[in-house]
Amino acid sequence: MSRQDVLVTADWAEKNLGTEGVVFVEVDEDTTAYDGGHIPGAVKINWTDELQDPVRRDIVNKEQFEQLLSAKGIGNDDLVILYGGNNNWFAAYAYWEFKLYGHAGVKLLDGGRKKWELDGRTLTTDEVSRPATSYTAIDPDLSIRAFRDEVLDAIGAKNLVDVRSPDEFSGKISAPAHLPQEQAQRKGHIPTAINVPWSKAANEDGTFKSDDELSELYGEAGLDGSRSTIAYCRIGERSSHTWLVLRELLGHSDVKNYDGSWTEYGSLVGVPIEVGTGAGR
């Protein structure tokens, strides 16, 4: 993997808006951003109810993913360019899910909606409709998804990267500062985890930092390159951003996203929890 296999620039995107076989997809938690103006030709995916099962706490299954992509008019051979707000958090989560179900051609628009808007590039409210396809997914690739038992076994054995803010990591707060506080029963972090907030991997305009800067960031934080890695946050979207950095941009070989993240771990009975700045540093 190299950066060109994972990311496209806003310039590239603008030149390829009408290109046959390229499908732009905006992914947000709240799709009012899309409705107020989106990249021309882009379809929308709602993170909350289209990438997750509406009833069980889980990502959509293979059949649901197939139905979703078919309905959106995305074919197996299409090159999908994902972008979104919140510094591409939910677009990165979608990227992870597209990879999980074996979509070959998927890339992220570097900088997402923010850079596109700051550049003053075209947004439109035109309705987009694409003819339905008959999409076929593979069984989920569990080499990139971690579950809770595996996370427990990883304590002291693998790199655990907690990508939440320092105050969430230390147990001072349970959710990001701009959001109502909610969720897990306990605060803190998984013992032996290192804390590298996702934001350290991004520039102010939402683009990813350079490979050299990223390598230095995780090296200095104590990430052991010879070990496997599991990334987590609160609900699995910020950790998708870091998963993408470690596995797709830096090319680390065994990196999983723990999408259960702190809302699951911090509610489990009997598991070890550490508070404070941690022993990982």
Binding site: E29, N86, L179, P180, R234, I235, E237, R238
Partner: peptide
Amino acid sequence: MCGAPDQAAALPP
């Protein structure tokens, strides 16, 4: 949830 809440001037109830 992790999206930004409505940024209207009024504070949430």
